[in-house]
Design a protein around this nucleic acid. Structure first.
Lengths: 244, 244
DNA sequence: CCTACCGATCGGTAGG
DNA sequence: CCTACCGATCGGTAGG
């Protein structure tokens, strides 16, 4: 889209499928890890400080309190997935089927590549009302984006579910669920998990092709010719399961 | 099944669709409520004792410690849903489609009718290793029951998903998700939510009828003649959404 | 074998 | 960013 010369100070639009190492302040990184292991209330500020290698007061020099750590992490997370999903939707255009697939792919890629951030969604209960309200508003916006696309697809007959709002909520729940079980050293890559969840989601919203396999949205998946080097059974058998 | 006379001391088999008031020790009831509101680590034993109206030592007379409260609640919950799912599977017989529908219905009914118990699933991280292992084993057993049924249906062609293990995990995640948003005073009854999730789940595992509407597994749902008195749009519009 | 507490205080930790 | 602390509260237990 941007045709400006490379010396333009505008950074190149980060692609929604591209994930580098997570770049957060060390305090946020270790807070994220601790919250993942023990939950928000189960984590002491001394634990976080110890992981970072600083004293407790040093923590409070950088962040107002423990709540600010969680709020910053959750807001960073929801904004990133929302940006990526918007980018995916924009790139795939107005065709509801492709748009839906791109959005689901982008969300699942996020859940897998940013598992530790995405997993914090379970801690929204520990957000103070104002922080929670902002987080939930962004999450609801994501849900509405996806619902609009499903409604558009319904109008065209590419999605047949009679209950699009329920279907979208279920799709988002199953995407979010990826953050609960995905492991980097598991049998499936993030990209493979995303591909599978696109297929599963298409079934949930009632896309005929997802069920009949005609046309196959993911030939590799449907015909069992996955390039994944990890296989727990012969081709034609059940798919390998990710670790828990 | 049981043809014994009524004076038999064997209690009538509790039906898996039947839900009376939750009957737990008052301490467990209030611990459940507190854990729901603030999480395990966010709840003090004094808070629980205060809700019950007893002193803290009185709490420790009945339960060894706070951990035992959570472990008892979670074990009660997973055993109940497992029992009900087994009953549903047994009642619906060996036909994979009906069996799958019955199992999903039983699980979703549990998530809605026993929302506060089912929601504690988010606290497994706070279980000590031994307690967690027993809980996860029972949850895995439920998953295997459902997977066996989906595999059987695949062999018959009633389910077409090429990734049955992923589909089953997604189905269970979306069922569990009901405990996150269902409200008794919401627009949908537990029974309506269960019916919708059976349809959504059929799409996820690739049951052709769920997508083509032929044959319609749930005529009321597919033809928009729901008896629900709550409607947010005219027939043919989008389905009402449950409260958050 | 079960149900049912009290006033006071234990050693440590919480967020700040 | 550290040393030195605070008011209060944590999960759990003492003797009676």
């Amino acid at each position: 889209m941007n045709t400006a010369p490379s010396q333009d100070t505008t950074p190149p639009a980060e692609h929604w499928r591209s994930y580098g190492p997570l770049d957060l302040h060390p305090i946020l990184m270790h807070a994220m890890a601790a919250f993942n292991e023990h939950g928000y209330h189960g984590t002491s500020v001394r634990d976080i400080a110890g992981r970072v290698g600083v004293t407790v007061p040093a923590l409070y020099y950088h962040y107002e309190n423990k709540q600010a750590l969680l709020a910053t992490l959750l807001e960073t997370s929801i904004k990133d997935v929302l940006d990526r999903c918007r980018a995916a939707a924009g790139e795939t255009g107005d065709e509801p089927l492709a748009r839906f697939c791109g959005m689901v792919e982008s969300i699942v890629l996020y859940m897998a590549h940013r598992r530790q951030l995405a997993f914090l969604d379970t801690e929204i209960r520990s957000l103070e009302p104002q922080n929670r309200a902002r987080y939930v508003a962004l999450r609801d916006y994501l849900e509405h984006m996806l619902l609009d696309t499903v409604e558009a697809g319904r109008a065209q007959g590419v999605f047949t579910t009679p209950i699009p709002a329920d279907a979208v909520r279920s799709v988002l729940v199953m995407c979010q669920g990826v953050a609960n079980w995905f492991r980097e050293d598991g049998p499936l890559t993030a990209e493979e998990v995303a591909e599978r969840h696109v297929l599963l989601s298409l079934g949930t919203v009632g896309h005929p092709g997802a069920v009949t396999g005609d046309p196959p949205p993911f030939p590799r998946l449907v015909s069992h010719r996955s390039p994944s080097p990890v296989r727990t059974s012969a081709p034609g058998g059940s798919a390998p399961r990710a670790s828990r």
